[in-house]
């Protein structure tokens, strides 16, 4: 991955730094897999694009299986989102994420950051780990996650009436009315998925862009957790 890095640095000049903890990396990749599976199964649930060979004994419960997969990963997603929110908001090691808010409040950083992406200015110095645009995108993503989870749960309680479904039934039905009925809930769920797809696409591109051009950018941090930079 680092082969494209044009900077020639010797081993003595760089040092290792743990950028992403194992916890962070796990949640990132679990989330990535969950999103992928949820999108594929979600598309199927919306319009079943393949059907099993018709046979006289309907034993291959394809829709049920795919819906089940969607549910399982939906709950995985809920768990991971809660976990990550906890880490971001409360964990000591994640203080730098919280500090990013300061950068976001600084107009100078905004101008420089946008300028950087437009190839006009240098990358601003950041106090936290995320630049303002990045943070905005992540906050947006989490709002969309929240909408997806709520609408998902509303759809869930209307199918599964016992257990968790029973527990959440009354409040979710109230929310359903506020959102304009079950059909609209389903549409919101669908539209939100598209927002996730677009944000994820941009995210992947930006990761690659940073890996290629960024000062310390390297994509393997999300795999190994480590990033490298010059000794001071």
């Amino acid at each position: 991955m680092n082969t494209t890095n044009k900077e020639e640095v010797s081993a003595q000049q760089i040092e290792q730094e743990m950028e992403f903890t194992p916890a962070y990396r796990w949640q990132h990749w679990i989330r990535a897999i969950a999103i992928l599976i949820l999108i594929i199964t979600g598309f199927y649930i919306s319009v079943p694009f393949f059907t099993p060979e018709p046979n006289s004994e309907p034993t291959n419960f394809l829709q049920a299986i795919i819906r089940n997969l969607h549910l399982v990963f939906g709950f995985v997603m809920i768990a991971v989102v809660i976990w990550k929110l906890y880490l971001t908001l409360f964990a000591e090691k994640y203080k730098s994420e919280r500090v990013s808010v300061l950068d976001m409040l600084n107009p100078v950083v905004w101008v420089k950051q946008i300028g950087y992406y437009l190839f006009m200015t240098k990358h601003p110095h950041l106090k936290g780990v995320y630049n303002p645009l990045q943070l905005m995108a992540y906050i947006g993503l989490y709002i969309v996650f929240f909408i997806l989870i709520i609408t998902g749960l509303i759809l869930y309680v209307n199918v599964y009436h016992e257990g968790l479904g029973g527990l959440l039934y009354a409040p979710m039905r109230e929310l359903e009315v506020m959102l304009g009925g079950l059909a609209w809930v389903r549409e919101l769920h669908h539209i939100s998925m598209w927002i996730v797809i677009i944000i994820v696409t941009i995210h992947i591109y930006m990761a690659i862009f940073n890996a290629v051009f960024g000062k310390q950018g390297s994509m393997d941090a999300i795999f190994s957790g480590l990033k490298w930079h010059k000794k001071h």
Binding site: H123, I198, Y205
Partner: peptide, 20 residues
């Protein structure tokens, strides 16, 4: 549209890397 935007950005970046 996002894809087009990404491709354009990447093409510019390849010719004119961002400032350090």
């Amino acid at each position: 549209a996002t894809g087009v935007g990404i491709a354009a950005h990447a093409a510019i970046a390849a010719k004119k890397p961002p400032k350090e």
